[in-house]
């Protein structure tokens, strides 16, 4: 690699090291494995940097390399990613009336309550998500990638990204609402009824 390319690599790729780690962690959920993935990602990125199209999103490019290395690792270990169907957790999106009713009747709309109420449960529910759904959501919410960038990183159509994020949030919302209900939290509608009773 020419020195100008090495300089460009340092400028383009190195600032994303923490983000690549967070992404690797979201994939592997193991700190040691995530760090190995980061090192392998940067080594491969360095070797392939001449194929990187300057001006495009380097972070998404690094994520794509990282994701492919992660999948290669699965293949090497003869371990398969967890690819359970998420259809069961989607709250009847195919039925618009039910979906509307779900939103209107069960929504938890208090930000303060939401943020105070949940802690590690969020991570627990995130781990329940199939890998591809969790990764899409994390790339969106934590890494701030747009749908197209996520599609590029994961090498899937943008419609698939949109669907995964939507289903992942629906799944999380449902789980969080169930948990809140177990804690005795009541929706606004229920509270209003209770207040009326008083």
């Amino acid at each position: 690699m020419a020195s100008k390319d090495e300089t460009a690599f340092d400028r383009e790729a190195m600032p994303h090291l923490d983000a690549v780690y967070h992404f690797a962690y979201s994939l592997s959920r193991e700190s040691g494995r995530a760090e190995d993935l980061v090192q392998d990602t940067y080594l491969q990125a360095y070797r392939k940097f001449t194929t990187f199209e300057q001006g495009t999103n380097c972070k998404a490019w690094l994520f794509r390399i990282c994701k492919n290395l992660f999948i290669d690792g699965f293949r090497a270990n003869r371990r398969r990613p967890r690819l359970q169907s998420i259809g069961a957790v989607e709250p009847a999106q195919s039925d618009p009336d039910r979906a509307i009713a779900h939103f209107h009747q069960r929504g938890i709309e208090s930000e303060e309550i939401f943020l105070d109420l949940f802690g590690d449960e969020v991570n627990h529910f995130l781990t329940e998500l199939p890998d591809e759904f969790r990764v899409a959501l994390i790339l969106c919410d934590l890494e701030g990638l747009c749908y197209q960038e996520i599609a590029d990183a994961l090498e899937v159509p943008i419609g698939t990204v949109r669907s995964r994020i939507s289903r992942a949030r629906s799944f999380l919302r449902e789980r969080l609402e169930e948990y809140a209900s177990e804690l005795g939290y009541r929706t606004t509608e229920a509270s209003e009824i209770e207040m009326d009773d008083e």
Binding site: S31, L115, V122, N123, L126, L137, D141, L142, L176
Partner: peptide
């Protein structure tokens, strides 16, 4: 917001 605030990123 909850994911952004609470998710374990390592």
């Amino acid at each position: 917001l909850l994911v952004q605030a609470k998710a374990d990123r390592g």
